[in-house]
Amino acid sequence: MGTEVTHAIADGILGGGVYALMAAGLTLIFGVLDIINVAQGIMVVLGAYLSYVLSVHLHLNVLTGLLITVPVMFVIGVAIHWLFIRPLRGSERTSMTLLACFAVALITEGILYWRFGSNYVSLHNSYSESSVHVLGFYLADIYLIGFGLAVAAIAALYLILYRTTFGRAVRATMQNQTAARLVGIDVTRVAAVTFGIGTAVTAVGGMVFGSINSFTPNSGYDLISRLLAIVILAGMGSIGGALVAAVLMTTAEALVDIWQPDWAVAVFYLAMVIILTVRPGGLFGRRAVRAQ
């Protein structure tokens, strides 16, 4: 029993890191652009399929493959922003961009069905077969590698945001777009690059997700609903909060899974609903809920 619980907690924390990374991209895009990118889930699946193609057809190591998939996902993110998000303006912009992202998700899902069919596939690699022995149980290497990658990527996001000129421009845009434009920041470029970065993290997330789970083009719905629950629980726009919320949620899920496997996923949404009734802004949300 004790081992089971420790194992669940370890699984939860390590798995939470990967969700935190995907959610960080989502919450970054929200913070800078005021856009709820509901396509993030299917982008993770797209990232997983890209890794799958590279490893099956080009026999690339999944970690080496990231050198290709991360830039590709970045370009896809910038393209989505340029084509479908940038032209949308006006008072209904937040709702319209959300629907545009939903449409992009639908098209991407359709294309994935067309190319890969609806059968479950998984990313086979040496890391999901080898494992290390800790505290009386075995942990697959991919969990540790995924967690390490996620932490490194989130740290990189923090460094970019708080230690570079570009990061300062991003934060200025987050606080006040008009003022940012007045001091000479190219807000459109900042927005495009932010969308690109927010999407690029799904390449890493997708690789780890695909190595741990088997997936179909339909997996995007499950992912996006979990990611949205994490982001709402954390408070929209907070990257650090996303990390805490993700680890909390996945650990709770892993613990419930020991006794009630069918209801484990429900923990995500129940936690979200309970928090929202007490704190409508989320755990780490800005105190004043942003006015429309």
Partner: peptide, 11 residues
């Protein structure tokens, strides 16, 4: 408010 509302209805 509105954009969080959309997300909560999805949840």
């Amino acid at each position: 408010r509105r954009h969080t509302f959309v997300v909560i209805t999805i949840a």
